[in-house]
Amino acid sequence: MMTIASSPRQTRAASFADWLEVRLPKLVLAPSVLITLVFVYGFIAWTSILSFTRSKTIPKMEWAGVLQYAKVLGHERWHVAVHNLMIFGVLYVLICMVLGLLIAILLDQRIRHEGTLRAIFLYPMALSFIVTGTAWKWILNPGLGLEKLAHDWGWSSFHFDWIINEQMAIYTIVIAGVWQASGFVMAMFLAGLRGIDQDVIKAASMDGASLPLIYWRIIIPQLKPVFVSALVILTHLAIKSYELVVALTGAGPGYATELPSTFMYAHTFTRNQLGMGAASAVMMLLTVAAIMVPYLYSEVRGPRTSSH
């Protein structure tokens, strides 16, 4: 009797468990999918719509065609911003990669206290950009930081005033940005280096290849996926970097260190030009998409192409 009575209950329980097993992942993911849909894609759509309207102080649904885009593209500050982004983006990505790889290779030489050193190099990434920006603002200020220190020590010809020099100020942002991110790139490369088959290296050194040659011809080519990931991460960090500039130079002197992100914020929130702000945001999004979409596409397609 007992067994007969319990068996349908058991199967019912089992079917519920099955049902749950199939649907649980979806249920758990549903809130974040919903949030992403509304707050990422919904707002992207909203911003895109705004960029085609005459909105000034508050959103106004009055069609303006591409007027706001024309205004942004004709704006002297936007040109400065785009030019600065080129300088900053290229130098930031390049220097971070070279420095990160170099430190990773040096750390990979089975040295003592590697853990401690790794933590030291990684640590800047744990700081917020505001902290980095403020600290470097003080370090680079000629009346407070490095230059004053050198003068106080008697090296009175020492001269380092990039942060107050209109032509050079953008490079101080590169310095602070590289300081912050190169440790992180190092960690990526170090993980890549640890994944390389040691036997290949041993075989190469038996064949008489020198260590630089091994790195140049064997190890670095194998790190290609790490290069791609680092490139994608650094590029989008460069395009959206905002806090660093705000804290370090406040887009000054004048507006010499303006970036597209500070341009967007200023027009949207402080200059009562919501439409122009939205248009510049859409242009930034398209730039990021131009880099991310091919990458994501290759990531999704990657396994399939390699399987045959």
């Binding site: 200020n141 000629p142 009346g143 005033d161 107050i164 130079t249 002197p253």
Partner: peptide
């Protein structure tokens, strides 16, 4: 010209 050079920001 009447200011100190470190006024930025």
């Amino acid at each position: 010209g009447m200011m100190d050079p470190n006024f930025s920001g």
